Amino acid sequence: MKEYTSFEEIDRDLEILKLQTQIDKEEIKLSIENAKAGISPLSIAGSILGSILEKALVLKAVTKLTGLKRVTATVKK
């Protein structure tokens, strides 16, 4: 435990603690705003679209590397 020799030291440490508390509150507010932005419908749709595009690009790259071709069935009439 810290020992104080003057009221000025105590006041200084109290001011530091007060400022640290304000900083912590602001960080919490920012975290909440970031979380809200991360779960917005637009963000979710963007993530889904990005995932689909990424998988399509990977599939295209793998097909080119392996030389496999897409087979389609045709129906004779």
Rank of each mutant, 00 (worst) to 15 (best):
G38L: 03
T74P: 01
L30S: 04
K55E: 09
K64L: 15
T72W: 03
N34C: 02
E54Y: 03
A37V: 06
I10F: 04
S51H: 06
I10E: 00
T63I: 03
L17E: 04
Q22W: 09
I32T: 10
L19I: 12
L19H: 03
L68F: 13
A35N: 07
K60E: 14
E26D: 13
L42G: 11
N34L: 11
V62I: 12
L59G: 02
S31V: 04
I48E: 02
S43M: 14
L59F: 07
L68G: 10
E33M: 12
E33N: 07
K77S: 09
E27C: 13
A35G: 02
T66C: 00
K55A: 10
I48G: 00
K60R: 14
A73I: 12
K18Y: 13
E33P: 01
S40K: 08
P41I: 08
L57I: 10
L49C: 06
V71Q: 12
D24C: 07
I16R: 07
K36Y: 06
V58H: 05
I48K: 01
L19M: 08
S47F: 09
I48R: 00
D11N: 08
L68H: 10
K76F: 04
E15N: 10
L17D: 04
E27H: 11
K55F: 06
R70D: 03
P41W: 05
V58S: 07
V75I: 14
L14N: 15
S51G: 15
V58P: 00
V75A: 09
Q22F: 10
S47T: 14
T21F: 09
E15S: 13
I23E: 10
P41Q: 08
A37Y: 01
E15A: 14
A45E: 15
I32Y: 05
L49T: 14
P41N: 06
L49G: 01
L65E: 13
N34I: 11
A61T: 08
K60S: 11
L68T: 04
V58L: 05
L57D: 12
V62C: 01
L30K: 14
G67C: 04
G38A: 15
I52V: 14
L19K: 13
G67Y: 06
Q20K: 08
K64M: 15
A45F: 10
T21N: 13
D13G: 07
S31G: 15
A61L: 02
L49I: 14
I10W: 00
K25V: 15
T74W: 00
L59A: 15
K76Q: 08
I28R: 11
L57W: 04
G50H: 01
E33F: 07
R12F: 13
K36M: 12
K29N: 14
I23C: 01
Q20S: 06
K77Y: 14
K18M: 09
I10P: 02
I52R: 00
L53H: 03
E15I: 07
K18T: 15
E27A: 08
E15C: 05
K64E: 14
I48S: 01
T63M: 12
T72Q: 09
L53E: 12
G46Q: 10
T72C: 05
K60G: 06
A61Y: 01
K25F: 11
S51I: 07
K76C: 01
A35Y: 08
E54T: 09
E26P: 02
S47K: 15
A56T: 10
